[in-house]
Amino acid sequence: MMRLIRPMLMPHRLVLIGLAVALVVWCALTLRWDWLPKYMPLAMEGLWRTVWLLAASTFLGFLLAVPLGFAQAVGPWYLSTPARVFCTLIRGTPLLLQIWLLYYGLGSVFPQIDGIRDSVLWPYLRQAWPYALLALTLSFAGYEGEVMRGAFAGVNRGQLEAARSFGMPRFTLFRRIWLPQAVNNVLPTLGGETILQLKATPLVATITVVEIFAVSSRVRQDTFVIYEPLLLLALVYMVIAGLIALAFRWLENRVPTRRPGS
């Protein structure tokens, strides 16, 4: 604990912290916050939707990224080429365009298919969030597929040979040796990419998914209060990003590694 506090006690930092506190107090006292109680329930709902979209899309995207990365790293050409093309397409076009392509494009094609209105899927296809989740998942998979390619290729060859020489079946080798080591090696990158994914979630507000960014836009339109909702929104995103960074640091520390100097 002292290790955290001591660097904060340097004189110039005390002044900076004082200024920051003064700024917060000034914001709290002089800016307009009277809209806050009224929109609080909606904001909580939006926050939940943001977190849920983030968690679901990173989880599903990672599941998709593992085969994509594996195919690119060691797969035969008929698997590695499509995987590489997919990653290039996703990484080469803006996410906003992908979201709009899926939502407006697919959304305009589906109603033309006969019988789809009577199917069990229709209630979902009419809503916006499945398209948002699909676009975010594919985007995360595209970026992570590239990261996992490097991760799979970077695992020490001797370890794989040792496992094989003991007669370990191929799937067990992948599950127990190859995948865990690949993931361990890129944990810091994955943490950064998860924060990038968090920063991509507000884009789904453009296709009428009411997450936290959409709530702040609605406050701005209803009350004409411009800065306050945006500042609060920035703070919310910073807190979530900080929590993600802490979670990944905790994960990294669980992995026993020899670091230089320790």
Binding site: F213, Y227, L230, L231, L233, Y237, M238, G242
Partner: peptide, 18 residues
């Protein structure tokens, strides 16, 4: 730190209005 933790879309709106 702040710029890298806050979504670009939010920053764009804040910086645009400011």
């Amino acid at each position: 730190t702040v710029v890298r933790a806050v979504p670009e879309l939010v920053l764009i709106l804040i910086l645009y209005f400011v």
